[in-house]
Amino acid sequence: MSEAKAVFDSMLGRFDADEADDMEAVFQFDLDDADNYHLSVEDGKCEMGEGEHDDPTVTLSMDLETLKDVMSGELDGMQAFMQGKIRADGDIMLATKLTQIFPQ
């Protein structure tokens, strides 16, 4: 299993359906140094897909290390965004909810 897939698998395991209750969104992750993945959240469920989604709600571009640091809580996502480590396109406010939907 790729390192990137392992990160997304662990995110799926931490998915908080209560936090994502009314959410309907597709998070596209474009990783500079790994395969791209997307997470679709709908009806309190989350599904992972490989590659590009046709119509993502928000696209987040970063390297794998940044993704791991943000999802492990070592790096604040907003701080990483301000430092230019994460580039976002689309519904940027949605991106701020990632750590609530996938808590540590």
Rank of each mutant, 00 (worst) to 15 (best):
A6I: 06
V7H: 08
F8M: 12
F8R: 04
M11G: 02
L12Q: 11
D16Y: 10
A17G: 10
D18M: 06
D18N: 13
D18S: 10
E19T: 13
D21V: 12
M23K: 14
M23A: 15
E24F: 07
A25Q: 04
A25H: 03
A25F: 08
F27Q: 07
Q28F: 08
D30Y: 03
L31I: 15
L31K: 09
D32Q: 14
D33E: 08
N36W: 14
N36A: 15
H38C: 08
E42N: 13
G44E: 13
G44W: 09
K45T: 14
K45E: 15
C46L: 03
E47W: 00
M48W: 02
M48F: 02
H53R: 02
D55H: 11
P56A: 05
P56H: 08
V58C: 02
L60I: 13
S61M: 10
S61P: 08
S61W: 04
S61I: 05
M62H: 07
M62P: 02
D63M: 06
L64S: 08
L64G: 07
K68N: 11
K68V: 14
D69H: 11
D69Q: 15
V70E: 00
M71V: 15
M71P: 01
S72H: 05
G73Q: 09
G73D: 06
L75M: 13
L75S: 05
D76G: 04
D76L: 01
G77C: 07
M78A: 12
A80P: 05
A80L: 02
M82K: 09
Q83T: 03
Q83A: 09
Q83E: 10
G84L: 06
K85R: 12
I86V: 10
I86N: 01
I86W: 00
I86H: 01
A88T: 14
D89P: 03
D89Y: 09
D91G: 04
M93L: 12
A95E: 01
T96S: 13
K97W: 11
K97D: 09
K97L: 10
K97G: 07
Q100Y: 12
Q100R: 14
I101Q: 00
I101E: 00
P103Q: 03
Q104H: 10
Q104F: 07
